[in-house]
Write a protein that binds this DNA or RNA. Structure first.
Lengths: 243, 243
DNA sequence: CGGACACTTGAATTCAGTCAATTCGCGTGG
DNA sequence: CCACGCGAATTGACTGAATTCAAGTGTCCG
């Protein structure tokens, strides 16, 4: 069995019942707006683990709301290294550019099977014209993404590896928690040591050493597609010690 | 004499004649809109080198357009280290948040004397309601800032010190060039080695070593408030080799 | 049960950090 | 105009965190 249950090619899910709704672009919409919103949804698709939603240099004419699954956004360097920019979860909005005909400058790859909702440029423009709250929400999403990136830049630039890892994990655990995951038991965690290493700017070998250290300290055990938090308080304390 | 001529406490400059206009939020405004814009400008102020525009944790009720001068945005860590997030120039828009009553999570400090144009939250809201192009422009500004941050994160996380420095300098030189500075001669450069080091995630001692290396290679000489580019092509080539 | 990939570990190396001592350059005040 | 003082830049010696290389071992999944 794969990590997460394969997503059936199922009937389209309505916006109203979509599990990602609480975290998505349209979280503040009224019932009436939601109906309109749904009409302008272009397509609903699935990705298999390993598939790209888009690649650096692509010019996708849509933006995407991730309904279910994990997606990794990253930039690739000329020497083949990656910098993971963000991990996207249910509700996250990806691929939007002010000018959709301009190339996107990072890649997005599914790390698990995913279900995704697409909006064409045309429909996005119509939605934005229709609803001022959606504009507000879009600006707010961009702001959040920028803040996350600034924070990441800060700890990647300045903190030692152990704290980078702690901060990164707390960040992800909080997001999972908000989505109803019980972090007191073993959780599906589809990122490899290498994925995490690329996110916090260290090598996978060093990532492993630091991971071992946190495990031996009985704080958190993170490997083989699972994470088990033994002492969230201690982990949060480590993370908090950065700022 | 100070690095840059002291800014006289002069008469308010009109938006129309403001030197930052070409790079600013309102760069696409019509003549008519510009007049309206100017009416809603709240105040025009000056900062002395070293002054804070705002500090992490503040809740300024205005956003700012930098008219003239250099401003450094940075986050501070608990151990006293800084991560410089961006260097702002003429035309850059600072301090905006979707909810202006929420605290800002980084600081902005003048590194030279600056002239600044403020917009109160109330007036920003009115401007945005008045002009859809301003909304568009705001989203576009946010997008650019996020892209810059993602790029910085990538090279800070993955590149060796020499390439980080090259990329950072090319970035700044390009911005200066866009603002009409002739980069073929010695240029005012008010950042210390320490400022640059904090931007690219290394120590000032190591920054110095790398700076010496680039100088000995006859590529660029950067110290004591001046930068002199000897071989911009070579510098750009170094920077380009990151991605 | 076997193959692939993820993870682990050790040893050697290297890039960058730390500490400390000068030197340099600029602005101030005599 | 020169001397002084201070912050910035430089240098050397040493330390240390993280990388590299290489050889395992463990786990998952078909």
């Amino acid at each position: 069995m794969s990590l997460l249950p394969k997503l059936p090619i199922e009937e389209k899910i309505s916006c109203e019942t979509c599990s990602s709704r609480r975290h998505a672009w349209f979280k503040q919409c009224s019932q009436k707006d939601l109906e309109h919103f749904q009409l302008l949804r272009s397509t609903q698709t699935t990705l298999k683990a390993g598939d790209y939603l888009f690649m650096e240099g692509d010019t996708p004419n849509s933006a995407y709301t991730l309904q279910e699954g994990w997606i990794l956004c990253f930039k690739t360097l000329s020497n083949g290294q990656r910098q993971v920019l963000s991990v996207a979860f249910s509700g996250d909005f990806l691929g939007y550019r002010t000018k959709m005909n301009q190339a996107i400058n990072y890649s997005a790859m599914a790390v698990t099977d995913c279900r995704i909702c697409s909006f064409s440029e045309k429909n996005i423009i119509q939605l934005l014209q229709h609803s001022p709250e959606l504009i507000q929400s879009l600006i707010s999403i961009q702001e959040t993404q920028a803040n996350t990136c600034r924070t990441r830049l800060t700890y990647v630039g300045q903190a030692p590896a152990k704290l980078k890892l702690a901060y990164f994990l707390v960040d992800i655990l909080n997001k999972l928690k908000m989505r109803g995951v019980d972090i007191n038991q073993s959780i599906d965690f589809p990122l490899t040591h290498e994925d995490v290493a690329d996110a916090i700017g260290i090598t996978s070998v060093h990532m492993c050493r630091v991971a071992v250290e946190l495990r031996r300290a009985n704080i958190v055990d993170c490997r083989h597609n699972h994470i088990r938090v033994h002492d969230f308080e201690a982990l949060k304390e480590l993370a908090a010690s950065v700022f």
